[in-house]
Amino acid sequence: MEQFEVTLAGFGGQGIMTAGQLLAYSGMKAGKKVVWLPSYGPEMRGGTAYCTVVISDQNIGSPVINNPYCICVFNRPSFDKFEPRVKPNGILIVNSSLINVSSQRKDITQLLIPANDIALKAGNVKTANIIILGALIGASKVLDLKIVKEIVKEKMSKKKELLDLNLKVLKQGYDLAIEELSQKEKV
């Protein structure tokens, strides 16, 4: 496997860091080299938050990635900032519940995932990050979904109902991404 890089971006409270960490732990479980690098600012609330995860078979050099292969944006400011940075032939995953625009770039694959809507329907808006994580796995196939599920079980087992919900929406996000991709291929 070549090096896989993803940046997740949104505002504080959307579970950006958690989703990134779950991915990093999953990579680790799969026996890969991983790095998880957060961004941080002095404001406690309302600031933008993003983190970068690198997964590779080789030792990882720079944790700073200007143009990651995959970017998941959770809100509009993040879309504006990161959309131009997706590596050509890379993947952009857009939380279309909160972002009413889409990328005009022809050199990337774009997936519009209404994560907040799905999460609300499933019963808890806070699971939007897990839906995006599922979509990220589905679209990139960077790791086996099974491993991610195991990690979610390990790390989020405190509340049984919430865990079940998270596992459900993880799969939903995953399936949605695969479905979207196959439709794109048909077109």
Partner: peptide, 10 residues
């Protein structure tokens, strides 16, 4: 630096 301080690696 802040990278070493904040980054997570196995």
């Amino acid at each position: 630096d802040g990278m070493i301080g904040q980054m997570m690696e196995p």
